[in-house]
């Protein structure tokens, strides 16, 4: 192998493993910290190279540190993902059967929704209808909290959505199960849950909220980038200087390891639109 791992890489990997996901600024701080502690060479702009070395050695283990964008704030994140057999069973060591069933139901609700969210009321009703073992309202609430705590779901005003970690980690699985329901974001070409949709029935492209904000910034008269129809949604304000988040590279890297043929099909159809 070209570049061997040092203790700096190992410490970085361990921290990502115990966190599941970290954001871009944490990754930068951690990169510096790990190099300092191990007495290794550190240069600020070499984070991606640093992670490439780790990924090279993780590859035979079917793991990968993947870079992705949050659907909520448009920021970059790094998560450790499995590149083979990415299924819900990945979580099974932590969850009971009925909890996993609830999670699948939540994913159904989210995938079938227009805006990538599921309301707590709908989820609570699901708990009542589980086949494996019903959950009482109170229990469902507790399980929901656990999903949020373990960073599989995010919650905002009683609406639940799939977390960045969940999407990054389970993308191949999501694409297999919901192949007809899912579409990619027209801007960044990643899977889009929390998004806006073009209302022209022949078009119907989706765009992540941060991507919408970025794309229409400074345009008073927004039109769909695909069919040029008027864009009827409110353009969200993103209070971060998103441009500095090196958007093109995140779009590219997020899609790095794709193994299943299904996903490449999904990507092609995404482009055709």
């Amino acid at each position: 192998m070209a570049r061997p791992m040092g203790d700096s890489h190992r410490r970085f990997l361990q921290t990502i493993m115990s966190n599941g996901i970290i954001d871009g600024s944490q990754a930068k701080a951690l990169h510096k910290h790990c190099c300092d502690v191990a007495g290794a060479n550190y240069s600020q702009d070499r984070l991606d190279e640093f992670i490439d070395v780790i990924n090279l050695h993780l590859q035979p283990m079917f793991m990968h540190i993947r870079k992705g964008m949050s659907e909520e704030d448009g920021l970059q994140y790094y998560a450790l993902v499995n590149t083979a057999e990415t299924e819900v069973t990945r979580m099974s060591s932590d969850y009971a059967d009925n909890e996993l069933e609830l999670f699948r139901k939540i994913m159904d609700l989210v995938a079938e929704s227009d805006n990538g969210t599921a309301s707590s009321t709908d989820i609570l009703n699901c708990g009542d209808a589980l086949l494996s073992k019903k959950l009482k309202k109170k229990e469902t609430e507790q399980v929901l909290n656990k999903f949020v705590q373990n960073k599989w779901l995010t919650e905002k005003h009683g609406e639940y959505s799939l977390s960045t970690r969940c999407i990054m980690e389970m993308e191949p699985y999501l694409r297999t199960i919901y192949q007809d329901l899912l579409k990619n974001c027209h801007v960044c070409d990643n899977i889009a849950f929390q998004c806006q949709m073009c209302e022209n029935p022949d078009c119907g492209i989706r765009m992540h909220l941060p991507c919408v904000a970025r794309y229409f910034r400074g345009r008073s008269d927004p039109h769909c980038p695909a069919c040029n129809e008027f864009w009827p949604h409110e353009i969200p304000e993103m209070h971060r200087p998103l441009a500095s988040q090196s958007q093109p590279s995140s779009a590219k890297e997020n899609t790095a390891p794709r193994s299943t043929p299904l996903t490449s099909q999904g990507r092609r159809s995404g482009r055709r639109l």
Binding site: M5, D7, R10, R11, L13, Q14, T15, M17, V37
Partner: peptide, 30 residues
């Protein structure tokens, strides 16, 4: 080599293993 962990056999009779961290825990960890 990759994870900085050591697989340790803690009971040679019943062949039990645990993973132990080879990197020292640091108080100044972020």
């Amino acid at each position: 080599q990759v994870f900085g962990l050591k697989l340790v056999e803690i009971d040679p009779k019943s062949h039990l293993y645990i993973l132990v961290n080879k990197l020292e825990a640091l108080p100044e960890e972020p």
